[in-house]
Each structure stands twice: as C-alpha cells, then as structure tokens.
Design a protein around this nucleic acid. Structure first.
Lengths: 364, 364
DNA sequence: CCCCACACCGTAAACGTTTACAGAAAGAAG
DNA sequence: CTTCTTTCTGTAAACGTTTACGGTGTGGGG
C-alpha cells in the first residue's frame, strides 16, 4: 500500500506540467500528442484521482448524508432503498447516520454539516425540537426533512399524512360492517402516536361512531407490547370486532394474541396495521396495512435535495405523500381471495419480491 | 450559506497565527491566554473544522465503505445493522454502496478505493471473479470480504458455513421422523445455490437416505418462484413430508402453496427456511430457519477492519461464523408451543423486537 | 522580413488544514 | 548584565488538486 501516484508523478513521467495533466484528465482542450503522453503515463502508473484533494478545491464532495433514527427500522429502510439509487444515478455517494432516536445525535449530525464532508443532508427526525430548528436555520448545506416540521420553517420538507391514513383504514373497517373498532396505539408523546390517536377520534366522529376510552390501548411500537396491549383490550372488551394498530409490529402482536384466544381473523376480528412493511405481506393472514408511502417519501426527498444541489435558490418546497390502504386477508378474509396469493393485491407484494434474497448468504 | 469561517478568520480575530489556532483546536500545549482568545473567537464565529482539508493533510477520512449487493436484501441489512454501530463507536462514518449484484459495479467500488475517500472497505460480493482478485491484490486501502474467497487470497475474510447449516436443518427434520425431504433451491450457478445443493446431498448421504432427483426443484431466491417450485414439487411427489428451502422467501412461498393445497404445516409437511430473516418470525406458522449469522458476520467484519485500520501489518485473518438452527412452529408445530409465542424460541424473535418500528412514520 | 493571432503549455496561487522549524520572550543561573 | 533554558508562537511548507494568467512557438498576413 505504498503511496499512490499523483498528478506530479504523471507530469514527471510524461514530461509535461501538472496543469497539462489536470487538463487532460478533465477533458479540456489539449494537443493530441500531449493527451497521448499523459494518458499513457496515467495508465502505466495506475493513477486514480484523489477525491479529497479534488473536493477541497472544488468545494464539492459528491456525498450526501441520510440520517435515520434506526438502521433496523423497516420504514426507514424502505426510504433508504429509494434514496440510494436516486443518489447513485446522480453521481453521489450515500453516507449513513443512525441517530438511535437520540436528539443530541441528530443535532450532532446537523452540526457536522459544517465539516463539509457532504454536500447535503436528508434527515428524518423523531421529533423536532427548538434546537433542531436553530441548527436548520444555520445549516451550512441544503437539508431536506422527512416528517412534520413547524409551519414556516424554511426547509425542504416531505410529509406523510397519517391522519388521512387512519381515516382510510377506519372507513374500510366501517364499510365492512365493523362497529366496535379499537385502537392499539404507541406512546402519545411521539409524533406518530399523537397524530394517530387524534385521527382515530376524528374518523369515528365522522362516521357517527362513539369514541370510547375503553377501546383505546396504549403501548409502544413493538410486537411484545402489542401482545400485551391487545390481551388487555380483549379482556376488557371481548366484543371488539376490529383492531386498528398503529404499526405493523403491533398488528403482528395482535395476530398472535387473537390466534391464541381462538378468534378468527378476519371473521371475528379484523386487523389493520400501518406502514405496510414487508412483514405485512409475510404474515398469515396477510395484514391489511396503511402505507404511508415510505418509499415515495424517500424518493421525493432525494429528488428535492438533488434539485437544490444542482440549482436553485428557489423557495423551500413541501411534498406531501398520500397514504394508501393496502387490503389483504386480515380484513377481507380468505373467502375473497385465492389461497396462496397472500400478497398479490398490495404493491408491497411485489416489493417483497424485488427486495428479496438473491445471493443472500453468498459467503457460505 | 455564505462561506464559513476558517482557521484564518479565527486567527485574524484572535490576533494570533493560524498555527496557534490549530494547536488550540487540537489540544496541544498552549498558553492559557491564547487558548482563551482562540476559543472565544471560534465560538463567536461558530467555527467548524473542515473535514476535507483535514483529511487531505492527515490522509485519513474517518470514513469506511460497505458494499452490498442490494440495499433491500434482509440478509445484508442484518449485517448493516451490526456494522453501523461498531464503526460509529470508533468514530467512523459509513458510506453505503449498493452494487445491484453487478460485477462491474463491484469492481468499480474496489477501483474507487484509489480515490481515497474512505479509509477502508467491507465488501460482500455476489461471486468472486478474477477481476475481483486482481483489484483486491492491488487495493490501496484495507478490505474485508464477507463471503467465500479462493484459498490463499491475501485478504481479511469472514465466512458463513451454509454447508453445516443445511446439515443441521436436515438432521433436525430427520430426527422428527421425516424421510422424504425435498430441497427447494435457487440457481446452481450462484455461490449459495451451489453450496446448498451439495450440502443437501451430503446430508442425506450421512443419514443413509437416498438422493432422489425428483425431490429437488430449482427456482430463484424469491417468493413467487418459490410458489411455483413448490407447486411442481407437490404435483410430482405428493408424498413429501418436509421442505428444505434455500432461503426464507422461498419458504414463505412454500407456506402459501401448502396452505392452498390444504396441507397442514408442520403436521403434514415441515418447512425450513434459511437466513433467519425478520420475515421468518413474522410468518404463520413461524418459520424454522437456519441462521447463517448475518449479524455476527457483519460485526466480525467491522471489527477486523477496525483492527486493520488501527494497527497491524498482521497476516490476513479468517473468521468463520457457525450456523444456528432456529426452531419455530413450521417444524415443531403448535402442540409444542403456547399460542401467541410464535417467536419466543429463536433469538430472532428478540431481534424482531429490537429492530422494530419505534417512531416509524414519524413524519406523519 | 516583421508582426500578430492563435493554440498550447507552464508557473504559481488557491482550497483549509497540520506540523517542522526557527525565532521571540521570559525566567533562572552564573 | 550576560548566557542558557524553557516555553510559547509565527512562518512556511506540505497534502493533491484546479485554474487564472502569462509565456512560448507556430503560422499567416502585411
């Protein structure tokens, strides 16, 4: 791993100046003979441009950062899957940050923008504090935020609409004749938890159904808590006929418990998840789930950022991605569907295929 | 986004030289008074070190690249989940490359090491060509390969052992009394496909079972093909009592078809998947799956690379990760397990929890 | 034969750091 | 008061590029 050749090495060997070498390598007009000599020297030496030096001079790194709360979270991964190819196609590298949902870490990432090791940042913060807003205002590179941001924040922004999403789901359940629709939610002090709680209430109201405290259970966003929450719900209100779960993992927990209690899904109880992760298509019965468009949000964010990088001093833009209800067996039931086609309806079925395991374990 | 302050700006304001500024910022011994002045100036100006310039001088970027075939692939994601925190803890940033399983792209990544935008690389190639080996030998930065590599290749290497993995699974099925064990494999010209096919044959032999062509079906590594393959198998050999699937997605396809055909799992047919992805714990019945230790391989690779970066000119090392059979309902059946505990046995159950969706859809 | 235009090329500065080296200041020892 | 040490600081070079600017050589027109 000896020191590689530089532009100087080439210049010496080709008998020209470093300026000429640079010009040839960048395709600027040069005499044929010089081009030939430089190219030959570069080839022989196995020269590769030093990206760091180049960035220092050009003030461009061709790197973009994506800061997510948790690398393991399927919703963020869906974004990542879309962001990556968009950036790659535009010639940018992707630097990944996992903030572990720690606010200080997110602030850190924003701060580190000043180090100029990236040209821009896509960030999906857990919640937006004043510190976030301060840093955003002072940010030394373009930032795109995925998620809700206070009105008037001057930043490119991509949003989901979980309010409408919950409405879609509740409307679907109502249309199926369900009337005792419970909500299994995550913590109310998280942005999604709060939004979904409120949306549930509104949706019931719109449909003329009463809001009953007893039909709401709060846990966290993971499967074991989902089991606990649903178990308590069932004990308290054995008459529920539908469960609106605040995400897919909770919904999987719900399926576990219902199965154990001998309730048929969806005949006795219909179940709806949220986020439409790969897990929804994998479960049995396959989960009806509200897609909040993680993939679309990721793509939109990447495109906004690229626009900003390439060009304009335009006004900050807001993109809102519409939710979509992906209906599967956990609400519609088997009677309506051919067996073995558990994931044919929703788009996520296809995605599960695309994202599949070609070559996994390739190191075996 | 005006030009930020540099070390020069600070020097001017504090009335000292840039050398002093640099010393203060790096904690080198300096007079108290000077430290105070520099710090004050830096604070007032909101100075942040330029990482690019620093890298140019120090020849260290504190970045490491991870090249995977496909960002969407759960097995690679499991690696990523482990690699990320290890690198972060050591102060490295992670640059992600998705090669889309294209050999040329992988070569490209190796080539780009010469650009020196990263200090090292972890790569999990689909298959290893001569071009790979050439580039590896000439690589201008430390590389760790996850996956099989020809004997004698001088590179740090982390491997799974899918051969033993298949053996474990077949042994398990045999112990349960299954005697007509089919293999649903992926393409034989992939490394994992070939390895698993051979291992299947050997395992049968060891157990004194005959190898029957009819019991082997080849498709790809995705769910729809899994369905097709299993359907043909069942038509050809209605008497199979166990399916060894080359990965979890194929196994999910198998579950679809068996369910449609009215075969009970595991009473009539036991099913085993491979890779132990999150999907295995999510499905119903939960999938018994052979873990090839994606997570462990990721962690090991990160640690090997860090070792290499920090220190030594030691010999290349080889780490082999042992496979592990994670038994769930698809082979052991419900009688043996409390309902609703579909993922309690295997470790991946816990993982599914940890990796769950806190804050997903946080942008709602 | 002289001059000019033009194409090409080399010199040097710049990007923002780190650091070797030597100089300045200040105190201790004689 | 000189000299030697010690401690601190400033100057300048270096990392590997890109690029403004001016210089050289060629050919054509007068």
């Amino acid at each position: 791993m000896a020191d590689g050749p530089t532009i100087n090495t080439i210049a010496a060997r080709a008998g020209v100046s470093i300026a000429s070498v640079s010009r040839v390598l960048n395709g600027l007009p040069t005499r044929q003979e010089t081009v030939r000599k430089v190219m030959a020297a570069a080839d022989e030496l196995g020269y590769v441009r030093n990206a760091v030096a180049r960035s220092l001079k050009s003030r461009r790194t061709h790197q973009v950062a994506f800061a997510m709360a948790d690398v393991g979270n399927p919703a963020y991964l869906a974004m990542l899957r879309e962001i990556q190819p968009v950036l790659k196609a535009a010639g940018y590298r992707l630097v990944l940050h996992s903030t572990d949902a720690v606010v200080a870490d997110e602030i850190d990432v924003l701060h580190s923008l000043g180090e100029r090791y990236v040209d821009g940042l896509i960030m999906s913060p857990l919640r937006v504090t004043d510190a976030h807003l301060e840093m955003l205002a002072a940010a030394r590179a373009p930032v795109v935020i995925i998620g809700q941001v206070p009105e008037g924040t001057r930043v490119d922004n991509v949003r989901a609409d979980s309010r409408t999403g919950v409405r879609l789901a509740i409307g679907h359940l109502h249309a199926l004749g369900r009337r005792r629709i419970a909500l299994v939610n995550g913590p109310l002090d998280t942005v999604p938890g709060a939004a979904r709680g409120a949306a549930y209430r509104e949706a019931l109201e719109d449909l003329g159904l009463p809001y009953e405290e007893e039909l709401v259970e709060i846990g966290d966003f993971y499967r074991p808590e989902g089991r606990r929450a649903v178990a308590e719900l069932l004990a308290r209100r054995p008459d529920v006929d539908a469960l609106m779960c605040a995400n897919d993992l909770i919904a999987l927990g719900a399926l576990d418990v219902l199965r154990g209690a001998g309730r048929r899904v969806p005949e006795d109880v219909a179940v709806v998840g949220m986020d439409d992760t790969d897990l929804a298509a994998a479960s049995w019965p396959a989960l009806t789930s509200v897609s909040l468009g993680s993939a679309e949000r990721g793509r939109a964010a990447a495109e906004l950022l690229l626009d900003r990088l390439q060009g304009g001093e335009r006004e900050p833009r807001l993109v809102t991605v519409a939710p979509r209800l992906v209906v599967r067996a956990s609400t519609l039931g088997e009677g309506h569907r051919a067996a073995g086609s558990g994931d044919r309806t929703g788009e996520s079925g296809d995605r599960a295929g695309e994202s599949g395991d070609r070559a996994e374990g390739s190191g075996a």
